[in-house]
Every structure is written in C-alpha cells, then in structure tokens.
Computed example of a mutant assay.
Amino acid sequence: MTSSSAGIVFGLTGAALLTVGTLAYQAFATAPAKLAGTQASAASSAPKAPRDKRHPKALPGRSGHGERVVYSLDDDRIWLVAPGDRVTRTFTVTPSSVDPEPGTYGVTSRSNRATGSDGTAIEHVVRFTSVEGVTIGFSAAVDGSSPTHDPAVKTGGIRESRPDGDALWEFATIGAKVVVIR
C-alpha cells in the first residue's frame, strides 16, 4: 500500500468513526427513559410538585406526561397513570430508608419473588434505580407486614400492600417510566 492510499484509508476510517460516534451520541441523548433504562433526569433541589389541597389524592402537577408511575417522596404515595394522564390507582406506601433523587427513571428489572434487604419474603419487586449501591424498587411483603426501619441499615424497598403490589406489577413492566417527585 502506498503512503497516499494509506492516508486515504486512514482519513475514511476516521470519518466513519466520527460519524458513528456522533450518531450514537444523538441516539442516546434523545432516547426516552423507557428505552435508555437509566435515570433520564434528576435534580436534588427539585421543587415540590403542586398539589390540589382540596383533593390530596389527586395527581400532583408537574409529575410528567403519558403512561407512568408517579412516586411522591413527601406524601409516601404512588399514582399509576394511564395514557391521557388518567389515574387508574393511587395508594400509600412505606418508604425505604434510602430515597431516590427526584427525576425520571425506567424500570430496569423485576422479580416475582425475592428476599428483601431486611430479610422479609417479598413479591412483585419492581426496581428502577440504585443509590450508593442500594437498589431502589417497589415490593410487597408476602406476609403483608410493613417494614420497621433500623437507621443503621440502608434499604431500598418501598413497600406497598399486596393488592397494590399486584396492580403495580401488572402496570410497571421493564422500561416503564417512574417519576419521583417531592
């Protein structure tokens, strides 16, 4: 190969790599959280989502759009939101000892049965992020109990009742959007 043909091959290879890299970056930057499977946005200083004081169970404003699970850290409440921003179910939960940051996430894994980090048998586990090595997700205790928090133990299980856990399990499949608000 002559030096001029080697230069052409080198130039074409560089151009191809630049093009592929640019396209990959654009695809990742515009992919919805449902496809990306990672945290799409988070803000530790996120303002509290506006609430309807007359209807405390009403879906808070600024909690996203489209089909999603909305989890309020301040209210310990979940809303299952169908297309058209129609709430199909809302319920209270027992929070974990480690909170996720407010933001938009995608469901990354699910388990029908498992053992919680507190040693409790749990079902319908729906995971969506981790914080400092602690996996965060929704689950229901098989025996129907609520966890008692030991401040020395970091847990990520947000517990719901078994009927609410069944509903969330059916609703939040892999890639489903989870919006965490204050």
Score class of each variant (00 low, 15 high):
residue 135 T to R: 13
residue 13 T to Q: 11
residue 19 T to F: 15
residue 22 T to M: 12
residue 86 R to E: 08
residue 32 P to N: 12
residue 154 K to V: 05
residue 42 A to F: 14
residue 172 A to D: 01
residue 177 K to G: 00
residue 126 V to E: 00
residue 116 G to L: 03
residue 142 V to C: 06
residue 61 G to E: 05
residue 2 T to Q: 10
residue 126 V to A: 00
residue 39 Q to D: 10
residue 164 D to E: 09
residue 165 G to Q: 08
residue 86 R to N: 02
residue 45 S to G: 11
residue 27 A to E: 15
residue 20 V to G: 07
residue 160 E to L: 15
residue 46 A to K: 07
residue 122 I to L: 05
residue 173 T to D: 11
residue 64 G to S: 03
residue 34 K to F: 06
residue 116 G to N: 04
residue 72 S to I: 04
residue 117 S to I: 03
residue 78 I to L: 04
residue 71 Y to F: 13
residue 35 L to R: 09
residue 153 V to K: 15
residue 166 D to L: 05
residue 168 L to M: 09
residue 154 K to E: 12
residue 51 R to H: 08
residue 40 A to S: 14
residue 132 E to T: 11
residue 90 T to N: 04
residue 122 I to H: 05
residue 39 Q to W: 07
residue 108 T to P: 06
residue 153 V to W: 09
residue 133 G to A: 01
residue 43 A to G: 09
residue 138 F to P: 00
residue 170 E to G: 07
residue 2 T to R: 13
residue 58 A to V: 04
residue 53 K to H: 11
residue 1 M to W: 06
residue 111 S to D: 12
residue 66 G to R: 08
residue 158 I to L: 03
residue 15 A to L: 14
residue 108 T to D: 14
residue 111 S to N: 14
residue 141 A to M: 07
residue 50 P to V: 03
residue 133 G to D: 13
residue 103 G to E: 09
residue 82 A to H: 11
residue 135 T to P: 05
residue 51 R to N: 03
residue 157 G to Q: 13
residue 108 T to Q: 14
residue 121 A to E: 13
residue 94 T to L: 02
residue 30 T to N: 15
residue 169 W to H: 02
residue 29 A to N: 14
residue 104 T to S: 13
residue 168 L to Q: 03
residue 94 T to V: 08
residue 25 Y to W: 15
residue 100 P to A: 12
residue 68 R to W: 08
residue 112 N to E: 12
